[in-house]
Design a protein around this nucleic acid. Structure first.
Lengths: 227, 227
DNA sequence: GGGTAAAATGACCAGACGGTCATTTTATTG
DNA sequence: CAATAAAATGACCGTCTGGTCATTTTACCC
């Protein structure tokens, strides 16, 4: 079926398999601005000019490197999540898969963090970075929505919930990357999954502190959480 | 008591009151690397050389600007949290105060995000940025610990819980900054506070899905996440 | 008002870096 | 093996920017 992988295509693929990891290493270590094309070329063991045969600019190379990493991460996350049945397992596997991937690729994680920050800075539409980031929470959101539909958990905004899980995961990983002690991910992941899971639980039987969970002292402002 | 505010000190204070906001504006808009001292000087309406009379380098000016913003933010957060009695109100006011502050100072928020990202990139000890960031969760952590002691909530790791709240807040604000629609903070803040609060609740009576809340279906693969 | 010290200025410099392209090296073909 | 095309190279260029410092302006004091 695949007629001819045209030598050119093979060469390009080979080059990318060398360039992109080198780029991720350097961009991850230095960030976009401080990274130099000379350095990337050296890491990839080619001359600088060679890179410009395959990427038209530093930005283009950055985008390609970021894209490749995110795609791989998303793919792995998706595979793992798909084999989970219960929402809780989906959440745990989401956190665990990402923790594992980023532990394997710390440089990419740094690059990723930089890209997210840059996205916030520009504060604007435009880049497809935005859509890639949004895509990451899609599956999570679907899983939450399904659980709501099946009445496994209380009625919650599935998008907001997915984003919350996402944020918790990112914070956890960031802290791990800055060498903040704790060698055991599963423990921390478990804590987060537990927190979220309990937070999503339906008000158990009846008399629980469900809809009015304030400690005491609460005079009426009922429809705060209106939506 | 304060004997003489020495003209020099007054001048310095005045300069800083002009320089730091200008720096925050430019660093926030462009990030550290892209920001130029020329631009900051122009925004502050002084010559570039003048800045170097008060700060020995670009980095020093950046640090000073970041520090001043974080201190102000922390101070405001602390004041608000201190007047809250219940943990739930502390959490809500933490989120709300920060949301409010960052809404008033979007440039500083961008700068802040950049600084956090840079911290993760360097992945290392050293900067006092680290300690400033850590300081932010201290109060929250104390409030959680107090609630645990008073048995208002279940026994949780107060540090981890504080960090979780912190991460959720940061994610929420980041999303707001990228103009992601939703004009109403309190609604989203309420959702998060609710989620966390329920997550912290003591297991009500007894039969709740406490320590082993897996949905169903679980044939043994307990030690999957062994690492 | 004039003289001196402090403060401010902005032209200037040096180094760095993204990107180019004439030249060299390698692969292909007859 | 020669001829030719494709790929790789790295010296080079223009630009940009953090930081400096000789000069000018302002503030102060007698």
């Amino acid at each position: 079926m695949r007629p001819l992988p045209s030598k050119e295509a093979v060469l390009t693929a080979y080059r990318q398999s060398v360039f992109l990891p080198a780029a991720i290493r350097v961009f991850g270590e230095c960030g976009f601005e401080r990274a130099t094309m000379d350095r990337i070329a050296r890491e990839a063991e080619v001359a600088k000019g060679t890179i410009y045969l395959y990427y038209k600019s530093k930005q283009a190379m950055y985008d390609a490197a970021l894209r490749s990493g995110i795609l791989e991460l998303d793919e792995r996350t998706r595979l793992r999540m798909d084999e989970m049945a219960s929402l809780r397992d989906v959440i745990v596997s989401f956190i665990a898969t990402r923790a594992e991937y980023f532990a394997e690729h710390p440089d990419f994680f740094r690059m990723y963090v930089g890209a997210v920050a840059a996205q916030i800075m520009k504060a604007g539409r435009g880049t497809d970075v935005q859509s890639m980031l949004e895509h990451q929470t899609r599956r999570l959101e679907q899983a939450v929505a399904r659980a709501v539909a099946r009445r496994v958990i209380r009625r919650v905004d599935s998008a907001a919930t997915a984003l919350a899980i996402f944020d918790l995961t990112r914070g956890l990983l960031a802290r791990r990357l800055t060498a903040h002690g704790h060698p055991d991910v599963t423990e921390e992941a478990g804590f987060l999954a537990d927190l979220i899971w309990r937070g999503l639980n339906r008000p158990a039987t009846a008399g629980d502190a469900g809809p009015r969970p304030r400690g005491r002292k609460g005079p009426a402002h009922r429809n705060k959480g209106k939506k």
